[in-house]
Write a protein that binds this DNA or RNA. Structure first.
Length: 427
RNA sequence: GUGGGCGUAGCUCAGCAGGUUAGAGCGCCAGGUUGUGGCCCUGGAGGCCGGGGGUUCAAGUCCCCUCGCUCACCCCA
């Protein structure tokens, strides 16, 4: 299974290098997310990308596909079983249990997530998530806050064809009873289910609700809904949640089939589906409440709620809708040095120290070649130093945008000239 | 884990029913313009035709295997 060493090196299956200019959109997205959540007083949490595998087994659940068959697990040199984080919530919960920050603890993160799956459009073995978690409060106001932040962030990227689906999964008092009733009901419709699910009613029948096959979709017509079977506290929580979204103008659809795959979810669940993504994997974000998670992991009873947004998928939607195509700012100046490169060295350093964005050529290229590079860099001006300029202590300043005019300024006045041209030079 | 499609220059792809030194566009480099970018012209570099085996006088082209990419199922961001 080792890679063929006779061929060129490759990134591991399902991983990708993100290069400029694509990487610029990543920077923008992350910066925009940070602005969004920090306005709501969420603080960045940086936690390890790997944990003792046990953390994820207890947090996410051994029955989930993610833990059961997709985790990157290995023994480290001390023999401890380590797993690369397949998602962010369990790690954050572990950090909470260990550090006990004051509640409600409002945290945000940006992290890679690793799952050994077969890659396809919008699904990778290493993908990246932006997310928030709030621990220590069961207040439905937080469900509203968290969903609204996610919705506003997505809208801020310019992506419009997104549907917010919401559902409630109930809690330990009402869900088990519902699951029993659902199992009973599905048992009667067993013959109608698709091949994959016909024999799996005994397992988690909730999964069948989410099945995409025409057979299952037809079969579950008229099946009892969890939202209609919620206990009073769960029903009240869900009602308050929806009223809050209504009041804030956050539009959503109720989707009783929305059942999230991790064991820790309770009550509110939600998902953002991008209809502009042609591929099958069109969920750009999702999350929900997980009131039992912290306790299940060995911490004090602590409710929580959060969401994660997939960077790759959100960018997929942005591409499909033609948004987020801003370019990084081009250099303010490009230094063309035809006297050996030493003059450029001084000029670029002086300008950079003054806060300007400046690039130059290397390798002793011809003047023509350097001008070409200057042009393609998108710089406003070329600062040219040839033998004549060097002899008289000046620099030629040539405008590159449109038909460039040019003038000469004293070498000592280059920074002042750049300021005069309207670049403030202070980032 | 299962199935479909595809692997030819840095990129996007031609390569007709197997037949001479494997092509184009874009990009890159150089020159035309011995101190000036964009447009144009000329030239150049760059290909284990994914890898291995087989059929054949002859394989980029046909067959088998393998690796990889891709799309989909399952599930998820």
């Amino acid at each position: 299974m080792d890679a063929d060493v006779s061929t060129e090196p490759r990134a591991p299956t399902g991983t990708h290098d993100v290069l400029w200019p694509e990487s610029w959109r990543w920077e923008e997205l992350t910066a925009s997310f940070a602005r969004q959540v920090e306005r709501a007083n969420y603080g960045l949490v940086v936690s390890p990308m790997f944990e003792y595998a046990e953390i994820f087994r207890r947090g996410i659940g051994v029955d989930s596909d993610v833990v059961g068959k997709e985790m990157y697990e290995f023994a480290d040199r001390d023999g401890r079983v380590i797993a690369l984080r397949p998602e962010g919530t369990a790690s954050v919960a572990r950090a909470f249990i260990e550090r006990r920050p004051t509640i409600p603890w409002k945290a945000w993160y940006v992290t890679p997530a690793f799952r050994h799956e077969r890659p396809q459009a919008g699904r990778y073995r290493q993908h990246h998530q932006l997310g928030v978690e709030v621990l220590g409060s069961a207040d439905p106001e937080l469900d509203i806050e968290v969903v609204t932040i996610a919705a506003d962030f997505i809208e801020g990227t310019g992506v419009r064809k997104v549907e917010l689906k919401v559902n409630s999964m109930g809690d330990a008092t009402c869900r088990p009873a519902y699951v029993d009733r659902l199992r009973e009901d599905l048992e009667k419709r067993k013959a109608l289910l698709c091949d994959d699910h016909r024999g799996r009613i005994g397992g988690n029948p909730l999964r069948i609700l989410d099945c995409k096959t025409a057979e299952c979709q037809a079969a579950i017509e008229g099946v009892p809904k969890l939202v209609d079977s919620l206990c009073d506290p769960c029903a009240a929580h869900f009602r308050r949640f929806r009223e809050g979204l209504d009041e804030l103008g956050v539009s959503y659809t109720l989707d009783f089939r929305l059942v999230r795959g991790f064991d820790y979810y309770s009550r509110t669940t939600f998902e953002f589906t991008a209809h502009s993504i042609e591929a099958a994997q069109n969920a750009v974000g999702g999350g929900g409440r997980y009131d039992g998670l912290v306790e299940m992991m060995g911490g004090p009873p602590t409710p929580g709620i959060g969401f994660a947004i997939g960077i790759e998928r959100l960018l997929l939607a942005a591409s499909a809708e033609g948004t987020m195509h801003e370019h990084p700012p081009p250099p303010d100046a490009f230094v063309v040095d035809v006297v050996g490169g030493g003059a450029a060295r001084g000029i670029v350093t002086e300008l950079r120290r003054a806060g300007f964005r400046v690039d130059r050529a290397f390798d002793g290229r011809s003047m023509k070649a350097q001008m070409k590079l200057a042009d393609r860099s998108g710089a406003d001006v070329a600062l040219i130093v040839g033998p004549e300029e060097q002899a008289s202590g000046v620099v030629t300043v040539r405008t590159l945008r449109r038909h460039g005019g040019q003038c000469t300024v004293p070498r000592s006045g280059v920074v002042a000239e750049m300021h005069r041209r309207g670049h403030d030079g202070d980032e």
